[in-house]
Amino acid sequence: MTDYPSAIPVCQLDENNFFVGMTSADLDPLEKQQHYLIPRLCVQADEPEQRTGFVPLWNKGKWNYVEDHRGEVVYLKKTGEKQTITALGKLPNDVTICVPLPFTEWSEEAGTWVDVANAAELRLQDKREKAGALARSQLLTSIELQFGKSKTDLLEIAERELTGDHLIKVRNAISEAQSFTLKNDDIWDFFTQTLYISADKLFALWEEAKLNP
Rank of each mutant, 00 (worst) to 15 (best):
K151M: 08
V116F: 03
I97D: 07
V116W: 06
G132F: 07
L122K: 14
G71R: 11
V55Y: 02
E129L: 10
R136N: 13
K77R: 04
Q83N: 03
W113Q: 08
V99T: 09
A117V: 13
E121A: 12
W63C: 01
W58C: 01
W113I: 00
G61R: 12
P102C: 02
K62C: 10
S107R: 10
Y65E: 06
F147T: 01
G71A: 08
A119K: 00
R70M: 10
A117P: 01
T86L: 13
A120L: 11
E105Y: 08
T79E: 03
H69Q: 05
T104R: 11
T84S: 11
T79H: 05
K130L: 11
V73P: 05
S137Q: 09
S142V: 09
G111F: 09
S142C: 11
T79M: 01
F147D: 11
P92L: 00
A87T: 14
A131L: 12
K151L: 12
E72R: 15
L139T: 04
F147C: 01
Q146M: 14
P102G: 02
K130M: 07
L91Y: 05
N59G: 00
V55P: 03
L140R: 00
T104F: 06
R70S: 07
A117R: 14
K151Y: 08
V114F: 07
T86E: 14
N93F: 11
C98P: 00
Q125R: 13
A135G: 13
A131F: 05
D115V: 04
V114P: 10
N59A: 06
L88P: 09
N118Q: 12
R70W: 11
K78M: 06
G80T: 05
G111Y: 10
A133H: 12
A119M: 04
E109H: 13
R123P: 04
I85W: 04
E129R: 15
V116Q: 06
E108K: 14
P56C: 06
W58Q: 05
P100R: 05
V116G: 02
T79Q: 07
L88C: 09
N118L: 09
L76M: 12
T79L: 03
S107N: 08
Q138V: 09
P102Q: 11
H69D: 00
L139A: 02
K90S: 14
H69E: 05
K149W: 01
T84H: 07
K151P: 02
A131N: 07
V66M: 13
L122A: 12
V114T: 14
E129K: 15
V99A: 08
E81W: 02
A133M: 11
E105S: 09
V55N: 01
V114E: 13
D115C: 09
L57S: 02
V116E: 13
L124H: 11
E121M: 09
E72M: 13
L101G: 00
K151S: 07
W106H: 01
E144F: 02
K151H: 15
E81Y: 09
D94F: 14
K60L: 08
L140E: 03
L91A: 06
V73G: 00
D68L: 04
G148I: 00
V74C: 04
D126Q: 15
V73E: 08
W106I: 01
Q125T: 09
S107T: 10
K78T: 10
T86H: 11
E129A: 15
N118E: 15
G111D: 07
S142K: 15
A131G: 10
C98V: 14
Q125G: 08
